[in-house]
Amino acid sequence: MPKKETADSVLAHTEAKLQFYTKYLERYLQILLAAKDVNKINIYDLYCGAGRYSDGQTGSAVRAVEAVSSAQAKITTDKVINLHLNDLNAAKVKKLRNLLAGKDSSEKQFFITFSRYEAFDLLKKIASKLPAQDRHTRNLIFIDPYGYKDIDKENLEAVLVTGRTELVLFLPIEQMYRFRLKAIDDEVDNPYIPLKNFIEQFELDVTKITSEKEFIVALESALKFQGKFFTASYSIRNHNRHLYGMFFITSHLYGLEKIVEVKWELDSQKGQGFTGENQLDIFLETDRLSVLRKAITALVSNGEADNLTLYELVIRKGFLPKHGNNVLRELCAEEVLYAIDAVERKSVRKGAYKLNYKEYKSRKPSVFFREGPGKKL
């Protein structure tokens, strides 16, 4: 289904969506351009639109080009970056071609291509090519449809299973939640058949979901594909109070950490979403950290935990390593927990808890955490 413009200007929630995508893209590109085992990066925007709104603001395609240019200016390499822009609307593709003429560069190994497919037909084509893809290639796919009719679970999983692809998906949560109960009978009215198909594909028990937030949580869980992937969500509420959800799916915990960074950058109080009316409240982050505190104490109470398991817990819960360090510092100061060096078997200095991806990737714990004041090591 072609992408419909809900407005011909960039409203606040549209800007929030674009920032989520492009801020992650900036991080993604810089990491991969610096990575030794990556030599090619493919970016796919399956519903790219015309590139510019009537108010002069730019869309996802133009911002992607700007992100590539910025990343290449910061990190000089000979790695290939391919940006593929797709939209079924021929007029939009034509406008976008003209807008981006001369923006790619063979000298910088940056190439822009265009197509006019139904988005999920293109996704099938991408999926069919991935098994034969060079292992040094990485892919990012941005799917921003109008609605959910064409979403196909098998196609999503097919592009993720190689472990070389990350995916950003935008969905109209308020609409899906509002009509969920009209789509669960054996026979439903035609307008609700696409929603019924979606609910059944992702095995959502919508009869037990009683809020939009619960719907997002349930869908985020379903998009982990039985634990095969890491997933994060970011909610966006527009000026009409309609709620949307951005969902990010990756095979790598480090990729999840980068998207969590974006969430906290866009919502510094709670790291959860955009409402258009967020007001600064110094207690919001404290309230959120209480959730992490409970999770950490519960994990440690079940037995000795290490810095690797705690790092993964922190990121999975939607927090940053700095949040984990702050909570651990408090717990150790209160003598609820204590930390010891895994090699020297002595207390570690305050705050040296080594919650980071480099340690996690090593698979060798360097700090252990136990309950109590730490008098007996």
Rank of each mutant, 00 (worst) to 15 (best):
L85C: 06
A119K: 01
F114K: 04
E118R: 03
Q133A: 14
E166M: 07
Q133R: 14
I209N: 02
V168Q: 07
K196W: 00
N86T: 10
D121T: 07
S128G: 09
A183Y: 05
V188W: 05
S128H: 13
A119C: 03
Q201C: 02
I112E: 01
Y192F: 14
K196C: 06
V80M: 14
I75A: 09
D185W: 09
K103D: 12
D144S: 08
A127Q: 00
I143T: 06
L219C: 08
V168D: 07
V188A: 03
Q175W: 05
N86A: 07
L167Y: 04
E187V: 13
E214C: 05
K94L: 15
I216N: 08
P145R: 00
P172F: 04
Y146K: 01
S211C: 10
S211T: 13
V161P: 08
N89Y: 12
E200M: 03
F142P: 03
Y117G: 00
Y146L: 00
Q201L: 05
Y117K: 04
R135E: 15
N190E: 15
A101F: 15
L88H: 08
L99I: 12
L219Q: 03
V80K: 13
T113E: 12
R164P: 09
Q109F: 14
T207S: 10
T207G: 13
Q175P: 05
I173F: 06
L181E: 12
K129R: 15
R178C: 09
Q201A: 04
L156F: 01
K196V: 03
L195C: 01
L160F: 05
D185M: 10
T162N: 07
L96S: 07
A101G: 10
R135H: 11
P194A: 04
G147L: 02
E212A: 10
L160N: 03
H84F: 14
V206K: 01
L219W: 02
I112G: 04
V206Y: 03
S106F: 14
P172I: 04
K149R: 14
I216D: 08
I81T: 11
K103G: 11
T165A: 02
L156A: 04
K125S: 12
L130R: 06
K129W: 07
N197T: 03
N197G: 05
K129E: 09
V159S: 01
S115M: 02
K213W: 11
R97D: 13
L99S: 12
I141L: 08
E203G: 03
G147N: 03
L171S: 00
K92H: 15
D134E: 14
L167K: 00
K208C: 08
K92N: 15
D186Y: 10
L99A: 11
I193L: 02
K79D: 11
E200Y: 01
E200T: 02
L181W: 07
D150M: 04
